[in-house]
Simulated assay, not measured.
Amino acid sequence: MFTGSIVALVTPMDEKGNVCRSSLKKLIDYHVASGTSAIVSVGTTGESATLSHDEHGDVVMMTLELADGRIPVIAGTGANATSEAISLTKRFNDSGIVGCLTVTPYYNRPTQEGLYQHFKAIAENTDLPQILYNVPSRTGCDMLPETIGRLAKVKNIVAVKEATGNLTRVNQIKELVDNDFILLSGDDATALDFMHLGGHGVISVTANVAAREMAEMCRLAAAGQFDEARVINQRLMPLHTKLFVEPNPIPVKWACKALGLVATDTLRLPMTPMTAESVPVITSALKHAGLL
């Protein structure tokens, strides 16, 4: 459940900005049918930053309900206060959630020792498997391989989502962890190369709109068929890059609507609708991928 193509799922909303249950069900059905390995609910792409605490938990539980055991659901549970991250994590104990994705604390920029103590404290308050999430471009905080190596010794910290796009990190981390520790890319554009170096999969934005293709690419990579996987990856490369032509999840939500996967591309302020200038850019990428 923590390998292959894991989608960082968008949170669909209606025109008034309320979570749209019918579109969420449609998205989940799409990923089940497409072979996606698991869903991350309410991560960055799921607009965790603009959902209230109650909504955050409610969306995760709604996703779990609608998945109905057909696909594993991972909860985004990060916060920049350790007590808040613990509280959110504990909400999902005994819920059916298979694990938690916890981002490094943002804005307050802790030291490496602070990061170690933060994640260790969270892990000690739950039996749920924990996936560390390192994305310094978003958080202003970079969790170094040495810190990941220390945390990998905590029994229920089982994986890391490495979203720096720095491929040298793969071997650096692998040298410091046991063989059963899972390395996941958080950068679609370098994910296949990440897997070629020994990574186990990707938590993907692209998979929101190219679920079958991402699942097949990861399956081929896991089987060592990298030439075949690269053919798919090259077809998806414009999507990997252009889905970030505006801040995530603005373009991917628009793309989901364009493909009929959700009813609207509504976002909450301060996120704003995709600009007219970006429409042909994303349309071209979708066509290059064979999705339009």
Rank of each mutant, 00 (worst) to 15 (best):
E146N: 04
D29T: 01
R138H: 06
E65Y: 02
V32S: 05
T44V: 10
R109V: 12
I28E: 09
I39G: 00
E84R: 00
T36G: 00
I71E: 11
R70D: 12
G78I: 13
C20K: 12
L24R: 10
T82D: 05
L115S: 08
G140S: 12
H31F: 14
A123D: 09
N108C: 14
Q117I: 01
E146T: 04
L51K: 06
Y107S: 14
L24P: 04
Y116G: 07
T102H: 00
Q117L: 14
D29S: 03
T63S: 12
Y106K: 09
G78W: 09
M62L: 15
S37C: 01
R21M: 11
K90Q: 15
A49Y: 07
I39V: 01
Q112T: 00
K16V: 02
C20H: 14
G76N: 06
V103R: 02
V60Y: 04
G96N: 06
Y107G: 10
S95D: 08
A33N: 13
K26P: 05
G76E: 14
G57K: 09
P145S: 07
E47D: 09
Q112P: 01
T63N: 06
S87W: 07
T44P: 13
D58Q: 15
L88K: 10
I39E: 05
E124W: 01
T44S: 15
M61R: 13
G57I: 06
A75M: 03
L51F: 10
A49R: 04
T36H: 00
D29L: 06
T50M: 06
A81Q: 11
D68Q: 03
K26R: 15
T104V: 15
D54L: 05
T89E: 10
D142R: 01
K120G: 07
I74L: 08
G35M: 06
A152Y: 09
L151Y: 06
E84W: 00
K90I: 02
G57E: 12
S95L: 13
L64D: 07
T126F: 05
Y106Q: 12
Y116V: 13
T89W: 03
G149Y: 01
S137D: 14
A85M: 07
T50H: 06
G17R: 11
G149V: 01
G78Y: 13
D29W: 02
T89Y: 01
P72C: 12
I86L: 05
I28V: 07
L144A: 05
I122C: 12
Q112G: 01
V59A: 08
V19K: 04
R21G: 01
N134M: 08
V40G: 02
N134Q: 10
T82E: 11
N93E: 15
S83R: 02
E55G: 00
T126M: 07
Y107D: 15
G76L: 13
N93S: 14
S41K: 08
L144R: 07
D58N: 12
Y107W: 15
L24F: 03
V42Q: 05
A81W: 02
K25W: 13
V73L: 03
G114W: 13
N125S: 09
G43T: 07
R21A: 11
K26V: 05
P136S: 06
L132A: 00
D68S: 09
L101T: 00
Y116P: 09
G99I: 03
N93D: 15
S48R: 04
E47L: 10
G46R: 11
D68T: 00
N80Q: 11
Q130A: 02
K16Q: 14
